[in-house]
Nucleic acid binder design. Structure first.
Lengths: 232, 232
DNA sequence: TCAAAAGTGTTATGAGTACACCCATGC
DNA sequence: GCATGGGTGTACTCATAACACTTTTGA
């Protein structure tokens, strides 16, 4: 094994591009870089950290995220590996980024808990980020939008039950343009992934809306048969 | 900078999944592992190597490939980063893989040149590969097929001029199923990416076929507006 | 004149898109 | 009874898919 230690090595990090929906706005989870002896002190950055030698990258990404921000992801996939030699002032640091989604309850939950060092920021109003994280966010957003067109990934951003209007709003917010209600519903129904719960949600003085949940089996099926951006 | 050296680091490699077309068969470029003091001696593996600390991952992948096999790629993109802790018996080695395409002239060229240690093998008749390379090839093949449906990437596997039948064969070979000639041609023409050269290729005692080349500008445009699996 | 590959058009089907009104509820 | 969001159907357009014959050449 000694021969693998004969040359200098790059450091390796995982970074998470985590999306959540709140107040009808698509937001990204950011952390403040607190340590003064590290680059970009005080700046906002994607949550992440150096890898653990014994752990899978995916696992490391999930755990680091959980530990540092308290967030649980409802869905995750590998995004891209960024390895420009000058992306980190400390030297060669290669970052494998992950794309993750969070349900609204989690978005709210820890927003208060870790309030000073963690924040959710609207994707179209981001501060300057440390390192090349702005670029990483761009890639993540692009992937989320593309993916949404072919796979019902968006369900990972919703609570366990939701109305069709909720779902449509989500697609509108992420896609950045309005959708036709009737066409949207026809499309959704044709996927056979939604199951009416029989329960209605009443809210305000309007007609109550049917609550749906999604069929886990069918959902997995759609994820698999959809376009695979990542796949192992 | 010292603080980045305070913990053990993973080694990092780049590996290339390189496709080429010859004898109407889709093939993959493999190298034999010669060194006896390294894992899997004598086994076939994807061409690759440890990264250079001063170089971009993409660049390293291209250069390593060129040096070890003599192959020039007509197109390349990042595929996926494999980081299972046990994928390499030497310890933690993270591999970022790349997907690459080669034109037929290159396939033939070095097939003789580096004959003993380098080979092109049909994708549906692969030997056992070192490490997790069989899995990597699977991901690469899947990506190539998916990508082909949305972007005219296949052009990267053809010589500078080619006939429509050549192109259709390529799509049939990679897709694994026959295509309708008329529908295929209509589709291709509607993309406006092919330009007739006015020259005809005569071959055997049949009607000569028009030779086409592709419009580089339009090709780039299609790559960009197509579904992006990777994107930086 | 024949064998072999090149080339060409029409029809049917399904998906996507555009579009406007009635329904149920709480106040 | 009215304001508000929930819920529904139809017609058009366009892309895809199925399908068979004529043309050009060299031998």
């Amino acid at each position: 094994m000694s021969h693998t230690y004969e040359y200098p090595r790059a450091a390796h990090t995982v970074d998470a591009v985590v999306f959540g929906l709140s107040d009808q706005v698509l937001k990204i989870l950011l952390m403040r870089r607190a340590k003064l002896d590290q680059p970009y002190p005080g700046a906002w950055a994607l949550p992440g950290g150096f890898i653990d030698l014994e752990q899978d990258l995916e696992e490391t990404a999930r755990q680091t995220l959980k530990k540092k921000t308290g967030v649980d992801l409802s869905w995750m996939e590998q995004l891209y590996t960024f390895g420009q030699p000058d992306r980190d002032p400390r030297g060669r640091v290669i970052s494998t980024s992950f794309l993750g989604l969070v349900r609204p309850s989690d978005v709210r939950a820890h927003a208060t808990e870790h309030a000073s060092e963690v924040t959710w920021r609207p994707v179209d109003d981001l501060p300057d980020l440390a390192f090349d994280h702005t670029k990483i966010v761009g890639v993540g957003l692009h992937r989320l939008r593309t993916k949404l067109r072919w796979q019902p990934v968006g369900l990972g951003l919703l609570p366990p039950t939701f109305t069709l209007s909720d779902l449509q709003q989500l697609y509108e917010v992420i896609g950045g343009h309005p959708l036709d209600k009737r066409n949207f519903r026809r499309k959704v129904h044709s996927l056979n992934v939604l199951v009416p719960t029989g329960v209605k949600r009443r809210q305000g003085q309007h007609r109550p809306a049917e609550l749906y949940r999604y069929d886990e089996t069918r959902y997995q099926q759609l994820l698999e048969q959809g376009l695979d951006f990542e796949l192992v």
